[in-house]
Design a protein around this nucleic acid. Structure first.
Lengths: 151, 151
DNA sequence: TTCATATTGACAATATATTACCAATAAGAC
DNA sequence: GTCTTATTGGTAATATATTGTCAATATGAA
């Protein structure tokens, strides 16, 4: 089954990407996970509560919460009052957070460009399309009772 | 940059696959990680020491060691003396281990077939090819000093 | 309003992974 | 033979992520 083979490649690629990301941004005092959280905040058009960020990333709410709290302690993220929900504060990049993301982008760009040079752009697009279709199907996957579970 | 987008899809797909695998084999008392270790043992043509299995999986030796030890305590794996190395025992599936892998395959097959039905087989192959090329490049990636690090 | 439901954050327990370091073993250079 | 190096397993500390549970808050139905 070709699809099972793809699964193994996804596991392997994921591990290497996390390791490579850790190495890339460790001089900035970041890790892959923290960088990804900062990226999710940066990419969102408007400030989001933690639960929404976790949903975007496809991760459990609680894990993202832990990292967001630590990044806030570190001064890279800040909580803003949410007029629509008293508890669900909106997460924003601070000036320091924006600066560190700019620094990360600066080391990331040549690294990604170098990687991309060896790969076929059309095939990259197809791979991204397949993976997105795959995880979208997995998100819809019903439980044994036919319901979709949350949290 | 299209490649950066692919990275995000890999992270998302990885998380969903682990979650789906956990759900699939939890009735058997397995997790995704243990299932993958058992799979690595099953797929190897000859019994391997733990360090080789970890290399095949692209994971740190120590993490695989922990799971192998637990699976051995559970009676699913067994260590066999290695004539070429006194410490590096060879890991093998026990009868129980083979039975549980057969049971896992039985629930996995229809699940994978169902997923594959919605995806283009040719594109799956391309995606696997791209991911393999990607992590191969990441494995070669030199450190800042130009050397390849191990362990 | 009142009630049920969903969302959100907080906290704890656990599984999964990493890195770092050490000891035992093996292989090869000399 | 000796010495150096690489491989391998063991152990510990830590980061990452999951699930489970609870309380606070918001939403919508009755």
């Amino acid at each position: 089954m070709a699809l099972s083979g793809l699964f193994l490649e996804i596991f392997r690629a994921n591990g290497r990407l996390v390791a490579a990301g850790d190495k890339l941004v460790s001089p900035l005092g970041l890790t892959s996970a923290r960088w990804q959280v900062l990226g999710a905040v940066a990419m969102s058009s408007a400030p989001q509560p933690v639960a929404h960020l976790a949903g975007d990333m496809g991760l459990a709410r609680q894990g993202v919460q832990r990292i967001v709290n630590e990044l806030a302690d570190q001064g890279l993220l800040a909580f803003e009052d949410n007029p629509r929900h008293r508890r669900a504060k909106l997460v924003q990049l601070t000036a320091d957070g924006k600066a560190i993301m700019a620094a990360a982008a600066k080391v990331q760009r040549p690294w990604v460009d170098d990687l991309a040079a060896d790969l076929d752009a059309g095939k990259i697009a197809i791979a991204a399309e397949v993976l997105k279709a795959l995880w979208n199907r997995l998100d819809e996957e019903p439980g044994v009772d036919g319901t979709l579970e949350q949290d």
